[in-house]
Design a protein around this nucleic acid. Structure first.
Lengths: 139, 139
DNA sequence: ATTTGTGCAAATCGTTTGCATCTGA
DNA sequence: TCAGATGCAAACGATTTGCACAAAT
């Protein structure tokens, strides 16, 4: 009970900090997303999890929130599979394993002591926003 | 005329080599894909290009062929954007710039003299099939 | 002749949108 | 109060599927 209350307060704070009004649904989703370690989650999964916790929320709101959280810098969207989007709660620079059979995503922490990537300048003077590395695993 | 005929024959050969029956549509699509340098193409684009060259083909066949070509090792599918798939005619190991505004894809040839990537072992004993590197450019 | 490919239209799937209703400050 | 959030169902766009017809060997 105490723990639950603390999680709730933390979610409210987190939302306020990024300028999002702490509504029932946003608080509940933030609780799910941020209270038990790093996660890679699909909209559908988050929806099911919310429903199974008796949170009254629609799929449209799930999508809205995921995008709002991403824009606010609470999540990072990862594009791995053309059939669906994943959202990552780990904001630190890191990369991913993608298990193609189980469609699961897992973090890779690259050791930059033994890794260097040198890219040529992008043509047309654009700035590189991110570099995504995905190791696709046959499992 | 002579050049056209040679391209045609080459496409027929190429299809036979990978065990695909050289039908009108497959030959025509192979001509488009493989006769003018490396390309990154979407199903829709290939369809439009085919139509504008008066090739009688349906979108369903475009998808069939792209997948058959990919399985046969003539193309490589690249997953960059969750809204659509790209197919790359360059089979050499290389990576990509993705211009997010124009949704264009361009090759990066990484210089492995100055780049090394060391990944930890994938968990669960799966084998790494490919490593995809996408530099997302704000242009 | 027999196998294989193709076209079409309908179905599917993840995601987005429009709009009426509700909620939080 | 009242801007902003939510729910619902319908719209969407890329891709796939089922099945009758056509083409390649």
């Amino acid at each position: 009970m105490e723990r639950k209350k603390r999680t709730y307060t933390e979610s409210v704070e987190k939302l306020r900090n990024v300028g999002l009004k702490p509504t029932r649904q946003r608080i509940a989703l933030a609780n799910i997303l941020f209270s038990k370690g790093f996660r890679h989650i699909k909209a559908e999964d988050l929806y099911n999890e919310a429903i199974s916790e008796n949170i009254k929320v629609s799929l449209a709101t799930i999508y809205n929130c995921l995008h709002q959280f991403t824009e606010a810098g609470l999540l990072r969207e990862i594009k791995i599979d053309s059939t669906c989007s994943y959202f990552d709660t780990n904001l630190e620079p890191h990369h991913h394993y993608y298990f193609e059979k189980s469609k699961r995503v897992e973090d890779i922490i690259i050791d930059y002591k033994t890794s260097t990537i040198t890219l040529p300048e992008p043509p047309q003077g654009g700035k590189i926003r991110t570099i995504d590395i995905v190791a696709r695993v046959d499992a």
